[in-house]
Amino acid sequence: MVTINHIIKAEGLVKRYGEFTAVDDVSFYVEEGEMFGFLGPNGAGKTTTMKMIQCISPKTSGILEVFGMDVSAHPREIKKDMGVVPQENNLDPDFTVYENLRNYSRYFDIPPKEAEKRIEELLDFVQLQDKKNVMSEFLSGGMKRRLVLARSLLNNPRLIMLDEPTVGLDPQARHLIWEKLRSLKKRGVTIVLTTHYLDEAEKLCNRLVVMDYGKIVVEGEPEQIIEDHIGTGVVEVDNNPKLVGCLQKSGLSYEIIGDTMMIYTNDPMHIASQLNMECSLDKITTRKATLEDVFLKLTGRKLRE
């Protein structure tokens, strides 16, 4: 058997809150050096899973190992080599940017001199050098997020856990975070993230899982998942009853959403011209299939929470 270095291993992982099962018998693994995504609608169990990996929420049952250690037995050792970017910024508003990092470095027992060096490097890395002495509450949303990212890197972590790292950020700030994550990955850091932005997941993740109702619905590489569930392309046309008959004859896979019909295919150009001739349509859009198509197909379009 080939031994691959599993940074995280979960088998039959369960988390219950009273009667409610937030994470329901989930199994997955994360390999060293990869970028791994948890996707899913609100309440799917992503954050709960993240919190169990971070050793702050005890599992109800199942196996969960990080760096080969059991999360309930070795929380301090695991957290020593982990960086965390939580969903909600929790910078210390009583401190400046610099003081936030210096104070945090103490929690990891980083000697003051070494901490000083790392703080300077990290401030350069996240481009906050000129905000060094600003109170953290006066930073913009994007700057706060960068500071939280810098803080998560103080201990030179092997694994970084990011819960919605770019939520609420403007495009510039999002791209900067992505760039930073890619450069961390190049250095061999393993990255686990949750996100609602499917373009983000598609761009960044080597592998991902889609969760829904506490279970993993699908697991794999983004392109492969799209191809398996949708095909490579999508043809969008205005919904009309005549078309339904036309499509049923051709045996294509399609979905009706409001006044739009989506046809999933590996050959969108061909289908488009075929539809144009046989069904006499005038408004046809063809595009590449995305993770968003898979997501909505698998988890449905009903609003959650």
């Binding site: 301090r76 050792e77 929790n90 910078l91």
Partner: peptide, 10 residues
């Protein structure tokens, strides 16, 4: 959320 930030460390 100071406590949350602290318990993400050892």
């Amino acid at each position: 959320k100071t406590f949350d930030a602290i318990i993400a460390t050892p």
